[in-house]
Simulated scan of single mutants.
Amino acid sequence: MNAAVLNEQQTIVIRGRKVVGGVAEGEALVTRDRISGWGGIDPRTGTVVETRHELRGQSFAGKVLVFPGAKGSSGWSAMFHMTRLMNSAPAAFLFNEMTTKMALGAVVTHAPSMTDFERDPLECIETGDWVRVDADRGVVEITKKKQEGAE
Protein backbone atom coordinates (compact mmCIF):
# COMPACT_ATOMS: atom_id res chain seq x y z
CA MET A 1 0.00 0.00 0.00
CA ASN A 2 1.43 3.40 -0.87
CA ALA A 3 1.75 6.37 1.50
CA ALA A 4 -1.04 8.33 -0.21
CA VAL A 5 -3.56 5.61 0.58
CA LEU A 6 -2.35 5.28 4.18
CA ASN A 7 -2.77 9.02 4.79
CA GLU A 8 -6.41 9.13 3.70
CA GLN A 9 -8.75 9.67 6.59
CA GLN A 10 -11.24 6.91 7.25
CA THR A 11 -14.84 7.97 7.85
CA ILE A 12 -17.40 5.73 9.52
CA VAL A 13 -21.13 6.50 9.60
CA ILE A 14 -23.48 5.03 12.19
CA ARG A 15 -27.16 5.67 12.77
CA GLY A 16 -29.08 5.93 15.98
CA ARG A 17 -32.06 7.52 17.69
CA LYS A 18 -32.32 11.19 18.62
CA VAL A 19 -32.72 12.02 22.29
CA VAL A 20 -32.01 15.76 22.01
CA GLY A 21 -31.96 17.36 18.58
CA GLY A 22 -29.29 19.50 17.04
CA VAL A 23 -25.94 19.26 15.32
CA ALA A 24 -22.53 19.44 16.96
CA GLU A 25 -19.05 18.23 16.26
CA GLY A 26 -15.81 17.88 18.11
CA GLU A 27 -13.09 15.60 19.33
CA ALA A 28 -14.34 12.38 20.90
CA LEU A 29 -13.73 11.53 24.54
CA VAL A 30 -14.53 7.84 25.03
CA THR A 31 -14.94 5.75 28.16
CA ARG A 32 -16.36 2.32 28.90
CA ASP A 33 -17.07 3.48 32.46
CA ARG A 34 -20.42 5.02 33.37
CA ILE A 35 -20.14 8.58 34.63
CA SER A 36 -21.44 9.77 37.98
CA GLY A 37 -22.74 13.34 37.99
CA TRP A 38 -23.00 14.05 41.70
CA GLY A 39 -19.46 13.78 43.05
CA GLY A 40 -18.11 12.37 39.79
CA ILE A 41 -17.55 15.57 37.82
CA ASP A 42 -16.46 19.14 38.47
CA PRO A 43 -19.13 21.19 36.68
CA ARG A 44 -16.92 24.30 36.65
CA THR A 45 -14.40 22.65 34.32
CA GLY A 46 -16.20 19.60 32.94
CA THR A 47 -13.51 17.42 34.49
CA VAL A 48 -14.13 13.88 35.68
CA VAL A 49 -13.08 13.75 39.35
CA GLU A 50 -14.37 10.33 40.38
CA THR A 51 -11.52 8.53 42.14
CA ARG A 52 -11.34 5.27 40.18
CA HIS A 53 -12.73 6.46 36.85
CA GLU A 54 -10.57 5.90 33.77
CA LEU A 55 -11.12 9.54 32.69
CA ARG A 56 -10.15 11.02 36.07
CA GLY A 57 -8.53 14.41 35.48
CA GLN A 58 -9.79 14.75 31.89
CA SER A 59 -12.30 17.36 30.75
CA PHE A 60 -15.23 16.64 28.44
CA ALA A 61 -15.88 20.37 27.86
CA GLY A 62 -16.63 20.96 24.18
CA LYS A 63 -16.03 17.30 23.28
CA VAL A 64 -18.33 14.57 22.06
CA LEU A 65 -18.73 12.35 25.11
CA VAL A 66 -19.08 8.67 24.18
CA PHE A 67 -19.96 6.44 27.14
CA PRO A 68 -22.32 3.71 28.32
CA GLY A 69 -24.55 6.09 30.31
CA ALA A 70 -25.20 7.68 33.67
CA LYS A 71 -24.74 6.21 37.12
CA GLY A 72 -25.51 7.42 40.58
CA SER A 73 -28.24 9.60 41.99
CA SER A 74 -30.83 11.90 40.52
CA GLY A 75 -28.27 14.69 41.02
CA TRP A 76 -26.72 13.59 37.71
CA SER A 77 -28.88 15.92 35.64
CA ALA A 78 -28.29 18.87 38.00
CA MET A 79 -24.52 18.53 37.68
CA PHE A 80 -24.67 18.36 33.89
CA HIS A 81 -27.09 21.31 33.84
CA MET A 82 -24.41 23.23 35.77
CA THR A 83 -21.85 22.36 33.07
CA ARG A 84 -24.08 24.07 30.52
CA LEU A 85 -24.42 27.17 32.69
CA MET A 86 -20.64 27.28 33.20
CA ASN A 87 -19.77 26.66 29.51
CA SER A 88 -18.06 23.37 30.33
CA ALA A 89 -20.64 20.95 28.91
CA PRO A 90 -19.93 18.30 26.30
CA ALA A 91 -20.66 19.33 22.70
CA ALA A 92 -22.77 16.16 22.33
CA PHE A 93 -23.63 12.89 24.10
CA LEU A 94 -23.48 9.45 22.50
CA PHE A 95 -24.54 6.75 24.97
CA ASN A 96 -25.79 3.18 25.00
CA GLU A 97 -28.23 2.91 27.89
CA MET A 98 -31.24 5.19 28.17
CA THR A 99 -32.27 5.91 31.74
CA THR A 100 -34.34 8.72 33.22
CA LYS A 101 -31.12 10.28 34.62
CA MET A 102 -29.48 10.20 31.20
CA ALA A 103 -32.54 11.55 29.39
CA LEU A 104 -33.03 14.46 31.79
CA GLY A 105 -29.29 15.20 31.83
CA ALA A 106 -29.20 15.37 28.04
CA VAL A 107 -32.26 17.63 27.92
CA VAL A 108 -31.03 20.13 30.52
CA THR A 109 -27.54 20.21 28.96
CA HIS A 110 -29.10 21.08 25.56
CA ALA A 111 -26.39 19.02 23.85
CA PRO A 112 -27.32 16.98 20.77
CA SER A 113 -27.71 13.45 22.10
CA MET A 114 -28.26 10.01 20.59
CA THR A 115 -28.71 6.39 21.66
CA ASP A 116 -29.99 3.05 20.26
CA PHE A 117 -27.26 2.75 17.62
CA GLU A 118 -27.11 0.24 14.80
CA ARG A 119 -23.47 -0.30 15.80
CA ASP A 120 -21.94 0.20 19.27
CA PRO A 121 -20.18 3.60 19.28
CA LEU A 122 -17.79 2.27 21.95
CA GLU A 123 -16.56 -0.22 19.34
CA CYS A 124 -15.97 2.23 16.50
CA ILE A 125 -15.09 5.57 18.14
CA GLU A 126 -11.79 6.24 19.91
CA THR A 127 -10.69 9.21 21.97
CA GLY A 128 -9.25 11.76 19.55
CA ASP A 129 -11.47 10.86 16.59
CA TRP A 130 -13.40 13.79 15.10
CA VAL A 131 -17.15 13.19 15.46
CA ARG A 132 -20.05 15.05 13.86
CA VAL A 133 -23.41 14.37 15.52
CA ASP A 134 -26.54 15.22 13.55
CA ALA A 135 -29.14 14.07 16.04
CA ASP A 136 -31.99 15.48 13.95
CA ARG A 137 -31.11 13.09 11.11
CA GLY A 138 -29.98 10.30 13.46
CA VAL A 139 -26.50 10.22 11.90
CA VAL A 140 -23.03 10.16 13.47
CA GLU A 141 -20.01 10.67 11.20
CA ILE A 142 -16.68 9.57 12.67
CA THR A 143 -13.41 10.67 11.09
CA LYS A 144 -10.73 8.42 12.49
CA LYS A 145 -7.67 10.14 13.93
CA LYS A 146 -4.57 9.72 11.82
CA GLN A 147 -2.39 6.87 12.97
CA GLU A 148 1.15 7.87 13.82
CA GLY A 149 3.82 6.20 11.76
CA ALA A 150 1.37 5.29 9.01
CA GLU A 151 3.77 6.26 6.26
Rank of each mutant, 00 (worst) to 15 (best):
E27Y: 00
E50K: 00
D120K: 01
S113H: 08
K18F: 02
L29N: 05
A91Y: 03
F80P: 07
D136R: 11
V48Y: 02
K144L: 07
S77F: 12
D120V: 00
K101I: 06
D33H: 10
L122K: 06
V133L: 05
F93Q: 03
G46C: 07
G57I: 01
G105A: 07
G105P: 15
D33E: 13
I125K: 03
P112E: 11
A111M: 04
T100Q: 15
G128Y: 05
L55M: 07
E148I: 01
T100N: 15
A28W: 00
P121G: 13
E25A: 10
T115L: 09
G46E: 01
V13K: 15
T109A: 02
E54P: 10
E97I: 04
K144R: 14
N2E: 10
K63A: 03
A135T: 02
A103G: 12
G16I: 12
S74M: 12
A24D: 08
T109C: 13
A89F: 01
T83G: 13
A91D: 11
S74C: 14
K18A: 09
G39F: 02
R17T: 15
T115K: 11
I125Q: 03
K101E: 14
G40T: 01
I142P: 15
T115M: 07
F93D: 14
W76R: 11
M86D: 01
V5A: 07
S77P: 15
L85V: 05
A24S: 13
V48F: 03
F95P: 10
A3F: 00
I14H: 12
K18Y: 08
S59E: 06
M86K: 05
V131W: 04
T51V: 04
F67H: 14
Q9C: 11
A91R: 03
R84G: 11
E123H: 00
P121D: 14
T109P: 13
R132I: 07
K63D: 07
E54M: 05
D134M: 01
G21S: 15
E118F: 00
P112I: 01
L104T: 15
F67K: 08
V107A: 14
H81R: 09
G26D: 03
P68F: 08
G72M: 10
T31C: 02
G46V: 01
Q58G: 05
S74T: 03
M79D: 06
V23G: 14
E97P: 08
S73Y: 07
A61T: 01
A89Y: 06
E141D: 07
P43N: 03
I125M: 09
S74G: 15
T99Y: 10
E118I: 00
K145M: 02
T11D: 13
Q9G: 05
E118S: 09
V131T: 06
T143W: 00
M86Q: 13
K71G: 08
E27N: 04
R84D: 00
